[in-house]
Design a protein around this nucleic acid. Sequence first.
DNA 1: CGGTCCCCGGAAAGGGCTTTCCGAGAACGG
DNA 2: CCGTTCTCGGAAAGCCCTTTCCGGGGACCG
Lengths: 362, 362
Amino acid sequence: MTTARESSTGRRSEQDGPTVVRRTGPVLLSEVAAHAGVSLATASRVLSGSRSVGEPHRGRVLAAAQELRYTPNAQAQAVARGASNVVGLIIHDVLDPYFSSIAGGVMREVEERELVVFLASTHSDVDRELEFVQTMRSHRVRALIICGSRTTDRAHTERLVHELEGYAAAGGQAAVISQDRLGTHAVVPQNRTGARELARELVRLGHRRFAVLAGPRGLLASRDRLTGFREGLTAEGVDAADLLVLHGDFTREGGEQLATRLVADGSPATCVFAVNDVMALGALAAFRAAGVRVPDDVSLAGFDDIAPLRDVVPSLTSVRLPLAEMGARAAQLALDTEPQTPSQTVKVDAEVVLRGSTRRPA
Amino acid sequence: MTTARESSTGRRSEQDGPTVVRRTGPVLLSEVAAHAGVSLATASRVLSGSRSVGEPHRGRVLAAAQELRYTPNAQAQAVARGASNVVGLIIHDVLDPYFSSIAGGVMREVEERELVVFLASTHSDVDRELEFVQTMRSHRVRALIICGSRTTDRAHTERLVHELEGYAAAGGQAAVISQDRLGTHAVVPQNRTGARELARELVRLGHRRFAVLAGPRGLLASRDRLTGFREGLTAEGVDAADLLVLHGDFTREGGEQLATRLVADGSPATCVFAVNDVMALGALAAFRAAGVRVPDDVSLAGFDDIAPLRDVVPSLTSVRLPLAEMGARAAQLALDTEPQTPSQTVKVDAEVVLRGSTRRPA
DNA sequence: CGGTCCCCGGAAAGGGCTTTCCGAGAACGG
DNA sequence: CCGTTCTCGGAAAGCCCTTTCCGGGGACCG
């Protein structure tokens, strides 16, 4: 693996080929030290600034490093220091705007601290999620942020908790987003109150018959939003008992299918609430395809207020979540909290944003 | 830094506290070896499968690793092996669907090979871009994929090339997307032919007066698309000389501003071509705000065919680029090519997709 | 001018792993 | 039954750094 390597100082002076120094493999600290005529320790100290070094030497090391284009080996540094400067981020899918917004927030926070992020996307595959936690742990990421798991599988959740315990025991800090009771720091949106407020607004608009495009049964976010929505209806005196709830999977296709079914079944609902925007977009497309006009024939509301919403016509009513903030908060929790501290849960506000997709029913 | 650590086998047998082993820091291979009663070398061989190990030992190592929840230190492995299993990906912005689609393609390819990806986003900051190349290099990423730099600054490009040369000299493989002549592998879309075809289609629709919302002057992608567009016009017998070209920055806001200016100036164009979809979306919003109907008052076409386009009304005519493929191809180039091979440039096709935002002028 | 302290350079001991090298025993062939 | 070849364990050398530990000057003080 290691190719034969000659001292660059020695090599250069001999004439054993063209001047083009075609070397393979990075420059080593020892070479810099040799080039500068100082010891390895001195070179290390100059470059990492761990201790003051006298000017004559200092200058020469710096010059040598520059000339040789030395780049420290971060992996070796991590090993030697016993601490890495990378953060792991596990999300569901980069293409989903919900996740990419969160990822953006995380990355901002991470980059501010001069750290780097490992990104992994699970694509809803629970096994991949577990594998990634392993991988991240193996890379000794100093913090791990998880915003993926949309599983309702109890066994999987337990395995995840187990993995996270292992990670924590190994000295890592973890934070999850939009999940709970995982024994880690958590950032959870006020799903319930957000949905409750939304329901109230919708009732105030005059709606009485609703359909909900929910997420997977038993999934925290979906369940909370559904519960909140029901509470809101009840609070406004609408009977939540005959609320039509269809369970989907949080994806666009899911939203499309659900909405199509709604249309096919001749649902009497005057207002449809999709528990996340991605499904709402799918529903919007399905309605359009079926010739159902939004909001004329049916009102439509989503949740999350993802970025692409702004270009949709009609603009979609939603419940705004500060996605980037959520990512940032999670990163802060994982990075700025002392290890061994009891885990914290940060709640973030959700705010109803009424837009063109909802209006008073005909 | 290193906390005092006692041999776990020895420790456990004594009764010096509750059974709960609260240790901080990861389990070491040496501990696994001790626990299994074998040498470090044997444990390493079993776990990495680098050489066959007799059954009695093999089983015990595996059992010990499992019981102790050992996770190898990937950083140390990388140092020892002299090769890391991480890939660097530098993009402009995770939130921009153009980049996240590409990132998705890269990640698919990377994860297929059981590697992990470092993601960095430059946010258009050229200095950050250079820094990130450094960082990636420092982490000894085995491949580096860059899809960022939207700079037109010659000096910066030179520095980038310089950095990339350094990276290559250190044994790394790099691939860039939508850039050229950087001395690395490259994946470039057929910007020119795509735009040319688009222009021809638009002329065939009956348009004669066009405005182009271009990107930064001198940026490859923008320039090529503009050139191609001109060629298409000429080919169809439309004089490209009086083509109105406004230069923007590829962002949504830029598109909005440009379109607003267009409206304010009372442009006679019946068709507007935004050289990327993100600007096209901005323009669409601006037109809508200004009461200009698309496509009734003006036709609008974009380029890239980014994902959120499907939810826009009217659906946007664009030139489809296989973004995920492009990312995947770049990853392949960087990962599957022998080092020291002359760099390849892969061209990917661009295909015009006519949709509702363009129609015959009134 | 002797003693103390401090500054700074180098040797060497790590950090957690892989891999080479060696040697002991088993298996095998003649 | 002996020599050869294999197989497989362990010791130890490496991978590229950081950091501790020392020791040799100088500065500074009395």
